[in-house]
Simulated assay, not measured.
Amino acid sequence: MLTVHHLGISQSDRIVWLCEELGIPYELVRYDRDPVTRLAPASYKALHPSGTAPVISDDDLVLAESGAIIDYIVAKLGGGRLTLQSDHPDFAQFLYWYHFANGSMMPCMMMLMAEGSVAEMMRDRANRNLVALNEHFAKGNQWLAGEEFTVADIMILFPLTTIRAFVPLDLSPYPHLRSYLKRAIARPAFQRAMAKADPDLQIPAD
């Protein structure tokens, strides 16, 4: 049985959402952050050597890292859904945005918690990433992989929404990106996921 170990207000939101989109059975075990430090409790850190969210278990397997978990679930339990095959015309675009979320966007957002010249450099990089996303949707793309919703969209939402509970992010200059976020947040599977994972969290779309 697949178990999603969900740390409140964390990247494990993605995994709950993925399971809801795929309509697969899973058990949700929720862990609250320390109210003072806002860090994961010791019980969560003990799940995997990485000590970070997300984490899943499936029988004897314990797996961390958003991308690895998504690939595992899609391949083993999801029948390859929410991905594009190599012969699809938007395959390369899908791959780019799928890896962009944690390869480019998340490091920028995390570094904005720091101070000084490094934070300023990361803010500039984050702004360029936001411009690129806005331009992508300005071209008429409904989703990151064109007209098809994929795991790339599941990956990108956290650094654009939930992480803003920790890092301020002004999206007012990016109207096409804001419209995209509203589409994503309105998906029934997303609404179900957040009702289970973080029911008290207000998800910003602007």
Rank of each mutant, 00 (worst) to 15 (best):
Gly67Phe: 02
His99Leu: 12
Tyr98Gly: 06
Leu47Cys: 03
Arg125Ala: 15
Phe149Ile: 10
Ser104Trp: 09
Ser12Phe: 07
Asp58Phe: 13
Ala75Phe: 13
Phe100Gly: 02
Thr37Cys: 07
Asp153Leu: 01
Gly103Asp: 06
Leu28Val: 07
Leu22Asn: 04
Tyr98Phe: 15
Gly103Tyr: 08
Tyr72His: 12
Ala101Phe: 00
Gln142Glu: 14
Thr52Pro: 07
Gly51Ala: 04
Leu133Gly: 03
Gly146Arg: 02
Arg81Gly: 10
Ala75Ile: 09
Leu7Thr: 01
Pro107Glu: 07
Gly78Tyr: 07
Gly116Ile: 00
Ala92Val: 13
Ser86Pro: 14
Val62Glu: 03
Leu22Ser: 02
Gly80Ala: 00
Val16Ala: 01
Asp153Cys: 06
Ala42Asp: 14
Arg14Phe: 04
Cys19Phe: 07
Ile9Pro: 00
Ser66Pro: 00
His48Asn: 04
Gln93Asp: 10
Met121Ala: 14
Cys19Met: 09
His136Tyr: 06
Pro49Tyr: 08
Glu148Leu: 14
Ile154Ser: 02
Leu7Met: 05
Asn102Ala: 13
Gln93Arg: 15
Phe94His: 12
Met109Thr: 09
Lys139Trp: 08
Ser86Ala: 15
Leu28Pro: 05
Asn134Ile: 03
Gly79Tyr: 01
Gly116Tyr: 04
Phe100Cys: 02
Arg14Tyr: 00
Tyr26His: 04
Leu22His: 03
Ser104Met: 11
Glu21Met: 07
Phe149Val: 07
Ile69Tyr: 00
Ala68Gln: 07
Arg30Glu: 13
Ser12Asp: 04
Ile24Ala: 04
Ala46Asp: 11
Leu95Asn: 11
Asp71Tyr: 10
Leu28Met: 06
Gly67Val: 04
Ala92Thr: 13
Ser10Ala: 12
Leu61Lys: 05
Leu95Lys: 11
Glu120Asp: 15
Cys19Ala: 11
Gln11Glu: 13
Arg81Ala: 14
Phe91Trp: 12
Arg81Ile: 07
Gln93Pro: 01
Asp34Asn: 15
Glu21Tyr: 01
Asp90Gly: 09
Ala46Gln: 10
His99Glu: 07
Leu28Arg: 02
Leu95Thr: 08
Tyr26Leu: 06
Gln85Asp: 15
Thr37Asp: 03
Phe91Met: 09
Gly51Trp: 02
Ala145Asp: 05
Asp34Pro: 04
Met106Cys: 10
Asp13His: 13
Thr37Lys: 10
Arg38His: 14
Met106Leu: 14
Pro107Met: 05
Tyr26Trp: 01
Asp34Gly: 05
Gln11Arg: 15
Tyr31Arg: 04
Gly51Lys: 02
Gly146Cys: 06
Gly79Lys: 01
Lys45Glu: 14
Leu133Val: 09
Leu39Gly: 12
Asp60Gly: 12
Glu27His: 12
Thr83Leu: 05
Pro35Gln: 07
Trp97Glu: 00
Met109Trp: 04
Ala132Trp: 06
Glu135Thr: 15
Met109Glu: 08
Gly8Asp: 14
Ala152Leu: 03
Tyr26Ile: 07
His136Arg: 13
Ser50Asp: 12
Leu130Cys: 04
His88Leu: 09
Leu130Arg: 04
Glu65Val: 08
